[in-house]
Design a binder for these strands. Sequence first.
DNA 1: ACCTGAACACCGTTCAAGT
DNA 2: ACCTGAACACCGTTCAAGT
Lengths: 191, 191
Amino acid sequence: MVAKTRDLLVTAAARLLDQGGPAAVTLRAVGEAAGVSHNASYKHFANKEELLAAVASRELARQAKTVAGIEDKHARAIDTLKDMMRGYVRWALARPERFRLTYGRWESGTEELAESAGNANTQMIALVKAAQSQGDLAGGDPERIAALMLATAHGAADRALSGHLSRAGKGHADPEGLVDDLFAVLRIAKG
Amino acid sequence: MVAKTRDLLVTAAARLLDQGGPAAVTLRAVGEAAGVSHNASYKHFANKEELLAAVASRELARQAKTVAGIEDKHARAIDTLKDMMRGYVRWALARPERFRLTYGRWESGTEELAESAGNANTQMIALVKAAQSQGDLAGGDPERIAALMLATAHGAADRALSGHLSRAGKGHADPEGLVDDLFAVLRIAKG
DNA sequence: ACCTGAACACCGTTCAAGT
DNA sequence: ACCTGAACACCGTTCAAGT
């Protein structure tokens, strides 16, 4: 009896989201997929948005766990950073609906999301500082450099997902390649 | 009698979107705001999404007109590019709902959007080439450099709009500043 | 060619009731 | 404490009918 109803609801919502986009995530469909009635969600969440916030929170928690494994793989902080940003892009392209949900519109239930995002940001800044002291990155405000990396990775992924933008050459400006380009420039810029 | 029903509907939809987000844009509300019945939209658009596509198309057309004015202001292409990217960010922050609509989910009615985006992309690439030949930008695939600029501007704006990301220092990593940072690095990287 | 009122199936949410 | 069936207001879409 490990799977409680609350978890079943979150899992069902995530699955429906992946398969059919936000339009497919109705409380009735979620209830049916979880084997409960169409309004059982209200015993666990204040409303639909809070159920979706739980889906996003779980996703960010998994992301954090994945990232934790990356840090041990590399000797130099710059390589960890690059790997993290590539992972960010790969995640967005592999799970577009969860990516868009996570960074979408939130009216409430955001505390947990904000905390996860804050932790990730703190970690990024520490890595930038380390890369700077290891001589792989130019000086300058570590928070701004971290934000620049995240902005590029996020924007590259989001623009790639908006198919109507990049009809041109495909492999020509793929999102992971753009992350590589940014890092190449940042390395050169160090001296 | 210049204002036809079709234009009234698009205008009403844009206004409702700005004021109350996507949830406020119901065909009934649009009809009422335009002074027609709740289903008059179906005489001008196949469905709700095509009405929204018309809103997005109009927005991109206005963007293109704004950009056209920028090009004459600067002697050097690099300054035009920077101004364009700053304008992109400012537009996203000033009209977040239209920005998110434009780069959101589209199932159909995308041809016009794709064309506008394609034109903008072509123009960007030409400017990158010009900046390179003027000695303000390093060599390398102009399409990739243009895509890097757009990705950074887009990501900086989108992450700023997701309020739950940047609880930390505010002016510390503002989106326009990140665009400046990218251009600073790209200038340095040329040598 | 453009518009309307009525109707349909569907959705989020509430509520009284059950265990 | 958790769940259900019925009901409410609302939504996108369709349709027959009007000019």
